[in-house]
Simulated scan of single mutants.
Amino acid sequence: MSSEDQGAAPAGTDVPQQRTERQELTGEQVAVVKAIAASLPTALVELLPYRTVPKRNRSQFLAAMAGRTTAQIIDRAARRWVQHGYAEALHSIDGKGIGSAVGVAVALVQAGECTHPRCEDGFNIDTGEECRVCETRRADRRAAKKAAAEAGRNTGTVRQAPHRPGWWECTICHAPGKGDIPESGECRRCQDETAAAAQQLAAQWEQEAAERQKTVEAEEAALLAIEEAAARRQAEDQRAAEEHTARRQAADEETARLRAELAAQYPELAAVSGSTSTTPF
């Protein structure tokens, strides 16, 4: 059978791509499914029919592994077995066991709800950084929850985690949790993100207030400078006017003095003019 009939595997993976829903899996695909099923926690494998994934579930199991290498799928299953509470539900004294071993096996390997192809339970599988899409989705859910709460609708109902008796799911990111349910219905991570977002918002407001204060102070300083410049100009204009008046007065006095001297020296001119006043001859 040609490789085109089998379908091309996604780049960077070694998990054979499922051909179609109507066609049976190839021998290679069945081998991969069995190998990963065998790598699941021993306690879970012992609960599977014939210690493997039933034939009717193999297509679903294989489809859940798309986009990842076999090693990445094995790591995902091992991590979720502990983090999602399956191990404690099965082994702890107060654990209530596992309802469906096949359902748990599929849940351990299936892709998460995030739409980003490189998201691995909230983190970028290539860089290890938190998934931006998940952050945005949680922020949107939190905003929707807040809007609904303000509108008087109750959105804080916590769901019981499937296959994990005694566990609950976060109302924001649906991460599993155990023990007392927080009043907000949010897991610790979402609570920390909310607190961090509030702190960041407060810091942003404080920065904006500081910038506004700087702007006000700058405007006040500019206005004061304008007023001081206007006052200086007014003082200079006043001083110039006073100096001009003083010069005119001095000139008038000098003119009067000269005329008086001329009148004293040349009385005939004064007689002709008919006056010794300061008026022109």
Rank of each mutant, 00 (worst) to 15 (best):
His91Val: 05
Cys173Lys: 03
His84Lys: 05
Ser2Ile: 09
Ala264Thr: 12
Glu24Trp: 08
Gln207Ile: 00
Ala66Leu: 08
Gly103Trp: 04
Gln18Asp: 11
Ala66Arg: 11
Val109Pro: 02
Leu108Thr: 09
Thr69Gly: 06
Ile125Thr: 04
Asp140Met: 07
Ala151Gly: 08
Ser92Asp: 15
Arg247Phe: 01
Asp180His: 11
Gly179Asn: 12
Val216Cys: 02
Lys34Gln: 15
Ile226Asp: 15
Pro165Ile: 05
Arg19Glu: 06
Ala147Ser: 11
Cys190Phe: 03
Trp167Ile: 01
Thr20His: 03
Gly112Trp: 07
Ala246Cys: 11
Leu44Val: 09
Glu46Gln: 13
Gln17Thr: 13
Arg257Asn: 13
Asp75Leu: 12
Pro267Asp: 05
Gln18Val: 13
Asp140Pro: 01
Thr194Ile: 07
Val45Cys: 08
Arg141Ser: 07
Ile172Gly: 01
Trp167Asp: 01
Thr194Ala: 13
Glu186Phe: 00
Arg137Ile: 11
Ala222His: 14
Glu236Pro: 01
Arg159Asn: 11
Gly179Arg: 08
Arg159Val: 12
Phe61Cys: 01
Val158Thr: 10
Val158Trp: 00
Thr70Met: 09
Leu44Gln: 03
Thr26Asp: 06
Cys190Pro: 05
Val104Gln: 02
Cys134Ser: 00
Pro16Phe: 02
Asp121Ala: 08
Glu228Trp: 07
Ala147Met: 12
Ile125Gly: 01
Asn124Ile: 05
Ala139Met: 08
Val53Pro: 00
